[in-house]
């Protein structure tokens, strides 16, 4: 298991990570969500050993990667702007990655290259932004590290490629027992692919957990009333979010759905519809709640 223990990090005298705790279980896809400047990339760099934390540590199976850099062979970071040598082709970069990841999956590499229709002999300079992203995602998947860290993983990919990569990541995870940590702004995609998530804000993990479990406890309802509605009508319920628009109310509630529906029915709405709770709503709610507390 990859653990981040009480990690604090300052960048240019500005605290970016503040006593952050996080756990990435083996074989899971962890979605790291947060607004711009929340510290997602910094956290990934600390996890990959690029930055030394000011406080705390990152461990793999309870061994600190800072004390034993050889453990870094279990981690591969694909940053948002991956580095490649001048005039290097994908083939050259493959050779480089093979050094630190000797179990490189050559056959799988060939399969993906064909699937993406990439020419791995031409310099990466001549690739478009999306093609470069594809190239490094391929390398990341073929290295099959125990923990693959993807910063802004799907930036620059077209919808078709996003779909292919999401499928490949899930398949790879099952085959190789990898864990993937993905930071992205695209919450829809995170929702589709991640098992676990963590919402990062101001250097702290404000919410985290299993995506399925959390979504099971949250319910969104849209209600319509004959007369003007108000938020006070729902004060007796565990409301996370309430939007009132004249006679129409949208609620996010936490708890048992049957019990909640019984309680809502008592208010005699003319219409009650259950909607899916999206990660996006969860994210906005979590940030809102945090800001209200502040």
């Amino acid at each position: 298991m990859l653990k981040v223990r009480m990690v604090s990090k300052q960048l240019q005298d500005h605290p970016v990570l503040d006593q952050l705790d996080m756990e990435v279980n083996d074989g899971c896809i962890y979605g790291l969500i947060g607004p711009n400047g929340a510290g997602k990339s910094t956290l990934l760099r600390v996890m990959a050993g690029v930055y030394q934390p000011d406080m705390g540590c990152v461990t793999i199976d309870d061994v600190s990667i800072h004390n034993d850099p050889s453990r870094l062979k279990d981690i591969l970071l694909i940053s948002d702007d991956p580095y490649y040598f001048r005039k290097a082709s994908l083939l050259d970069m493959k050779q480089f990655y093979r050094i630190s990841h000797p179990d490189f999956q050559e056959e799988y590499y060939q399969k993906l290259i064909r699937l993406m229709k990439l020419n791995d002999h031409i310099p990466l300079d001549r690739y478009s932004k999306g093609m470069k992203r594809q190239a490094f995602l391929i390398l990341g998947l073929c290295c099959a590290p125990r923990y693959l860290l993807l910063d802004e993983a799907f930036d620059g990919l077209d919808p078709h490629m996003r779909m292919i990569f999401k499928k490949e990541i899930v398949e790879r995870l099952e085959e190789k027992q990898m864990s993937v940590v993905i930071s992205s702004h695209s919450l829809r995609e995170m929702e589709e692919i991640c098992d676990c998530f963590g919402i990062l804000e101001n250097g702290k993990l404000i919410t985290s957990g299993s995506m399925g479990e959390w979504l099971d406890t949250l319910h969104q309802y849209q209600l319509a009333f004959k007369e003007e509605a108000s938020a006070d009508m729902f004060s007796h319920l565990p409301v996370l979010s309430c939007k009132v628009d004249s006679r129409v109310v949208t609620l996010i509630l936490e708890g048992d759905s049957e019990m909640l529906e019984t309680e809502l029915a008592k208010l005699q709405p003319v219409l009650m519809e259950r909607l899916d709770v999206r990660l996006e709503e969860l994210f906005v709610y979590a940030l809102q709640e945090r800001n209200d507390k502040v």
Binding site: G49, S79, S100
Partner: peptide, 10 residues
């Protein structure tokens, strides 16, 4: 990006 690559090597 160069630092990300080289310093994350084992």
């Amino acid at each position: 990006s160069g630092r990300d690559l080289y310093l994350s090597l084992p």
